[in-house]
Simulated assay, not measured.
Amino acid sequence: MLKVLAAGPLGLMLSMGLAQAADAPHALPAPVVDAPAVHTPGEQTAVFSGGCFWGVQGVFEHVKGVTRAVSGYAGGHVVNPDYEQVSSGDTGHAESVRVTFDPAQVSYGTLLRIFFSVALDPTQKDRQGPDWGTQYRSELFVDGPEQKRIATAYVAQLDAAHTFGRPIATRIDPAGPFYPAEAYHQDYLDLHPDAAYIVINDLPKVQALRTLFPEWWQPAPVKVGKLASGD
């Protein structure tokens, strides 16, 4: 995992070049297929993988209707993996964020729209920005047939419109075990806003959310804080 940039101005310039080479974020069309608003009490969860989980978590913590966003590991074959194991690329896990949301306030389709608009470049395969490896793949771990239907339809909608100029590489797979990452990874963007990696790669995503989706922006992040048992 390239979380520590090369020392000196050269490393900074290389990372900035990678970030600037990506397409500028823009608001994508709303999904044609989406879940109806749910007016009965109850929360839902969805798992998103899109490169380093710091930025993905940072984005979703600012989305109105999201009540929790936890960084972790999904899609692998090792039980309770740690950061070093996942970073080796040998466990099959992807750095992921489990998002808990109130479907009466925000739909799964809207979360997908925000994710594809500002959180990643979905045409990149097994990488994202300066980070390379299968653990940085783009993947949607869907919770049941309804999420699968909405996610599949939205990816097809964006591909049919040639939204990105290249095919979307995002995988769609059933949700399996999700393992929260270590405590020091949680709320990382909020706790370390001046870190070079965050400034270059992740703060622009949060700013894009605020600019492109003001109706979904909540200024105070919904922070994880101290992880509880079962998180």
Rank of each mutant, 00 (worst) to 15 (best):
H192D: 03
D187S: 02
L2D: 02
P29S: 10
D121S: 12
A208S: 04
G75S: 08
D90F: 06
T40A: 12
L112H: 07
V86W: 03
I198L: 08
F101Y: 15
V38F: 01
P167H: 05
A74N: 08
D187M: 09
A181M: 10
L10K: 13
G109S: 04
D143G: 01
D102I: 13
D23V: 15
S96K: 03
F141P: 00
G8E: 11
S88T: 12
A104S: 13
F53T: 04
M13D: 03
D173H: 13
R171E: 09
K64N: 09
T91G: 01
V33S: 04
D159V: 05
A6E: 15
P122C: 06
S49K: 07
Q105S: 04
D102G: 10
A46Y: 05
G50Y: 08
Q147N: 04
A94R: 14
L18T: 13
T67I: 12
H185I: 03
L120A: 01
P167S: 06
P193R: 11
I200R: 09
K3E: 10
I198M: 12
G225M: 08
A228L: 14
Y83V: 03
A74L: 11
T152R: 12
V78L: 14
G58M: 09
E43D: 08
A183K: 11
T123H: 02
A153D: 06
I114D: 00
P174F: 10
H192V: 09
A27I: 14
Q147C: 07
F141I: 04
S229L: 12
S107A: 06
A228Y: 03
L112A: 11
G8T: 11
F178W: 06
Y83P: 00
Y108Q: 08
R166Y: 08
W216D: 05
I198F: 10
Y184K: 06
C52Y: 01
R137H: 00
G51C: 04
Q157V: 15
D82L: 00
G133K: 01
R171T: 13
Y184P: 01
Q128W: 06
P221L: 10
D231K: 07
Q186W: 08
V224M: 02
C52E: 01
R166W: 09
P122K: 04
L191Q: 15
A6C: 14
H162S: 11
I114K: 06
P180N: 05
V79P: 00
G89K: 07
A37H: 11
L112T: 13
E146S: 12
G11Y: 10
S49H: 01
P177Q: 12
L158R: 06
Y83E: 00
L209V: 02
G176C: 05
G42V: 13
A35R: 14
P122M: 04
K205V: 11
P219I: 09
G11P: 07
Y197N: 07
Q207P: 00
A27G: 02
S229G: 10
D143K: 07
P204A: 02
R149A: 13
V66D: 03
